[in-house]
Design a protein around this nucleic acid. Structure first.
Lengths: 223, 223
DNA sequence: GTCTATACATGGATAGAC
DNA sequence: GTCTATCCATGTATAGAC
């Protein structure tokens, strides 16, 4: 994904050139959207190793040069994808998790989100971006924000679930939230390889039963 | 990572050419080992997106053409890396998990394995291979075997832990084992991005406490 | 803002010398 | 079995026309 670097680096971008990122202005906004979508599609079907300005352009029937005009380089575009997806995800999770008050509900929301994200293919995109982030600090930074927001939201929901419960002071909520977020990621990666769609479904069904049990125990231990 | 494919495909490899895989014979065995090591190092420091025959050669001070002579193509070499690492991992896990009889021991083994694998960098390699596997069925196949073996070993250990326990008939061992394996993977990916080494340590410490508690409950519920 | 054309670099893969 | 040299495909990035 990288060749040379005869770019003048991060100069101040004097006047009309190299809008390192979206100029925020009106015109070309549609093209930028199409570039984002194309990059996502490319990431999804070719993987991070198959991404290039030309490959992205193909996926959106766009001109290869537009990547450089609007984002300076392929990586700039990928960073933008990471940011946008992070925001969308944060909003989705915030909405879904807002009403969660029991473990069973948390599991149900987890399944719903997983199914929706898997169907949309956005977890594939995320895992590919994460793999790419390993060798690109800037991309890593762009992805990291989204992960942190994710973990925080799960943490808050967990806090609500366990509030006024004997477990509240025992269970390390931050750790568990981190584990849950990691588990989500791992499930996607595993699923991408073994192609076993029923596995995750079975897992969630098991968690349904277990969470209902724990909820009952919690209610009896509190009240 | 791919350009053209003017390779005669998987012909029968008449006589002296294109030993699609390691000829198993003596000579050149050392070179093959060095190629494997170089590929691993390359995967680790450049990521799947930065892997190429030339990049691999650089990492091992080898000649680029050797990749094609010994493995037919870059992907063949990566598949070999996946297989070898899978075998090593399966052996390590089998040894470590053999003595596990309680949840606390399982957690302790989990921490030890995670630390060892993280220190060695082999989880980074695995996650990069997994990302690459998404767009390469053959590589996916090579990686999948290792994951399955992994899950199976955890499953067997869990079975032993819960044997003669009220939970044995309630807990879906296969699902939990799959979740544990996924969690391992996810933790590595997360860690690669947020660079927070203490997080996982903290998580394992929490799990130590929880597992000890559950073990006590199990023992009192059985005996 | 978008396109075509083009420079230059890198990578896959092979032939042939050693 | 390993190396050098080489061909050709692909990719990055820019210049300049529209």
């Amino acid at each position: 994904m990288s060749a040379q670097a005869q770019h003048p680096e991060a100069s101040v971008a004097t006047t009309p050139k190299a809008p390192r990122r979206a100029p925020a202005s009106d015109a070309g906004a549609d093209t930028r959207d199409r570039l984002i979508d194309a990059a996502r599609a490319c990431l999804q079907s070719e993987g991070i190793a198959g991404v290039s300005a030309r490959a992205i352009a193909r996926h959106g029937d766009l001109n290869q040069a537009l990547v450089f005009y609007h984002y300076g380089a392929v990586e700039g575009l990928l960073q933008e994808v990471a940011r946008i997806d992070s925001d969308r995800r944060a909003q989705l999770y915030a909405t879904e998790l807002a009403a969660v008050a029991t473990l069973a509900e948390l599991v149900a929301v987890g399944r719903r989100i997983h199914d929706a994200e898997a169907a949309r293919g956005s977890t594939v995109v995320l895992s590919q971006l994460l793999a790419g982030a390993h060798s690109s600090p800037a991309l890593g930074e762009a992805v990291h924000g989204g992960m942190a927001a994710w973990t925080t939201l799960v943490e808050q929901a967990l806090g609500r679930v366990l509030a006024n419960t004997p477990l509240a002071s025992v269970v390390p909520i931050g750790d568990i939230a981190y584990a849950i977020a990691s588990l989500f990621l791992g499930l996607e990666l595993m699923g991408g390889v073994d192609g076993d769609l029923e596995r995750v479904d079975s897992l969630f069904t098991s968690l349904d039963a277990v969470s209902a049990l724990v909820d009952a125990l919690l209610r009896s231990g509190t009240a």
